[in-house]
Design a protein around this nucleic acid. Structure first.
Length: 289
DNA sequence: AGCGTAACCTGGCGGC
DNA sequence: TGCCGCCAGGTTACGC
């Protein structure tokens, strides 16, 4: 499932393969793939035609392509199963091909948005007025991510202290810190030896700094090997799978021995998903909700 | 207001 | 063999 490292791998692929190219035609093959676009599929296609794509940017799990010389950006989110593929023109359509972008050059490739579960999509938005990188206005509420040099660590800590919630919820709250999903949340919590239901209100500054360090470490490790893949759904911009799943310490390891202490790892239903943890290294808070 | 939960969606898989 | 229910989870709408 694409989280920050996987999206960054896609962003780099787009930078190499589509930045600077001029859009010739857009086909929207499924309405849900453009449901965040205010004008619908026909409007999306019409407004993108003729535009020149700038250098792709990313914040958390969102990525966008600023349109050259315009205060507009194409915003993308991969959702659960989205892929952005650069394919040869004429290659057989993928089963779940949702959007095709053809270019007015002779490079011989096109950009495809493929998405089985249709949680992801593309849309066109005006950019925030003072944003040099062309931040789309609809994601202005998304916090900077932990790999962003401008991420405000002090503000993050103070927000954690002010919230009356638990630590994993706070890690997944994209308005506090972006880019963290269920997988990297469990990995960082395991590294920090924190139970997912620990209240954030009494986290000390050193403890939250340590947790943030683990979030950065696990994301950088994933980036180094090109993202994570658990099945054939996630591939990068050129259709290459990542290999980070082989080095996960917590996620998906129910009943397998903790890599620190050997205790069988556990899985608990949590927020319509699962939390994986070591019952010995990650003790639950005294008062569990 | 702030926090927690349900719904959106598809296909793989286990069980019967 | 085939069908049914469960599971995966990022985001947002909604309710308390």
């Amino acid at each position: 499932m694409p989280e920050l490292p996987e999206v960054e791998v896609v962003r780099r692929g787009l930078e190499r393969w589509v930045a600077g190219r001029t859009v010739e035609a857009v086909e929207v093959l499924h309405p849900r793939a453009v449901r965040r676009h205010p004008g619908g599929g026909a409007d999306f296609a019409a407004r993108l035609r003729g535009e020149v794509l700038g250098v792709p940017q990313r914040r958390g799990k969102y990525l966008w392509l600023p349109l050259a010389g315009r205060d507009l950006s194409v915003l993308g989110h991969l959702g659960m199963s989205g892929q952005l593929l650069v394919q040869p023109e004429g290659a057989v359509d993928e089963k779940h091909l949702r959007i095709r972008v053809r270019f007015g050059d002779d490079a011989g490739t096109e950009l495809r948005f493929v998405d089985q579960r249709t949680f992801g999509g593309l849309s066109l938005h005006e950019t925030v007025a003072d944003s040099a990188e062309g931040l789309p206005d609809v994601i202005a509420h998304i916090a900077r991510d932990p790999l962003d040099p401008l991420f405000d660590e002090t503000a993050y800590h103070l927000a954690l202290r002010a919230k009356r919630t638990t630590v994993k919820r706070a890690l997944l709250d994209q308005s506090l810190i972006s880019g963290v999903g269920n997988i990297y949340a469990d990995e960082a919590l395991w590294r920090a030896r924190l139970h997912y239901e620990r209240p954030t209100a009494n986290l000390t500054r050193p403890r939250s700094a340590e947790l943030l360090g683990h979030v950065r470490d696990v994301m950088n490790a994933a980036l180094a090997v090109g993202g994570t893949s658990f099945d054939s759904l996630y591939v990068n911009v050129n259709g290459e799978s990542g290999y980070f799943d082989r080095s996960l310490d917590a996620y998906g390891r129910e009943d397998e021995p903790c890599r620190r202490c050997g205790t069988p790892m556990r899985r608990r239903p949590w927020m319509n998903r699962s939390s994986y943890f070591c019952p010995r290294c990650q003790r639950p808070p005294r008062v569990s909700s």
